[in-house]
Amino acid sequence: MQNIKGKKALVTGGSRGLGKAIALALAKEGVDVAITGRNSKSLEETVEEIKNLGVNATYSVFNVAEKVEVKMQLERLIESFGAFDILINNAGIAAFGGFLEMEENDWEDIVKTNLFGAYYVSKAVVPAMVELGSGDIINVSSTAGLKGNAVTSAYSASKAGLIGLSESMMFELRKKNIRVTTLTPSTIASEMSKDVLKITDGDPEKVLQPEDFAELIVDILKFDKRAMLASASLWSTNP
């Protein structure tokens, strides 16, 4: 297994929940971390927590669904922080409801954020990885992208699209020594999943916790460079 200390990582949606857990787990391994999000106060607070672990940390405020904004802000971030060795496409939103009842704008926002957001961010970050001749990209999809449900049409469509994008990236970028992994966790206890847990009568204490998923990501990144995990699902044992 390789040591990831000293690498630079970008975690989108990194100010709270799953993204925050991932950022902190990476920092504990000695990785310098940049996080993105839309709430500057939450980002500032999380960056301070990361710095307290003895690594460099910074943040950038933007919406991953806005193409021009992503390109401009990431160009600035890479110039000031340096090229990234690790990209975690974690930013995502969710709303649940019947296919006919959900507002079209909500449906479109979910797809733009969860699918186009990962595309825009990757497009901005990957060229530097190609120049370095190495890199790791982990795209956070969902089991909802593997199988639809009665109230998850937008979310499932966005996450299924991300699986397709991620797998295609993997086949293309592995030839440049860049590893791309698609992860499809089941429900993780977070602010975003509270509506799902209400619908399914799930117990927040028994489903996956953000720290469980963050541990998996760290382990994947530590694989020897010759090995790559193309995809994996992480499930709660008995929710």
Rank of each mutant, 00 (worst) to 15 (best):
N3A: 09
K5T: 11
A9M: 07
G14W: 01
R16E: 11
G17M: 03
G19Q: 02
A23R: 00
L24P: 00
E29Y: 10
T36N: 13
R38F: 10
K41V: 10
K41T: 11
K41M: 12
T46R: 04
K51D: 12
N56P: 02
N63K: 08
N63R: 08
V64T: 04
Q73N: 14
L74G: 00
E75W: 10
I78C: 08
I88H: 01
N90A: 05
A91F: 02
G97S: 11
M102H: 10
E104W: 14
D109L: 10
V111P: 00
K112M: 13
N114V: 02
Y119G: 04
S122D: 13
K123G: 04
S134F: 13
G135K: 01
I138D: 03
G148S: 13
S153M: 09
Y155L: 09
A157Q: 02
S158C: 09
M170P: 00
F171C: 13
K175W: 09
N177W: 04
T181D: 07
L183I: 14
S186L: 07
S190I: 01
E191S: 12
S193G: 11
S193H: 08
S193F: 07
V196C: 08
T200C: 09
L208D: 03
P210D: 12
F213S: 01
L216S: 07
D224K: 11
S231E: 12
A232Y: 13
A232L: 14
S233D: 14
P239Q: 15
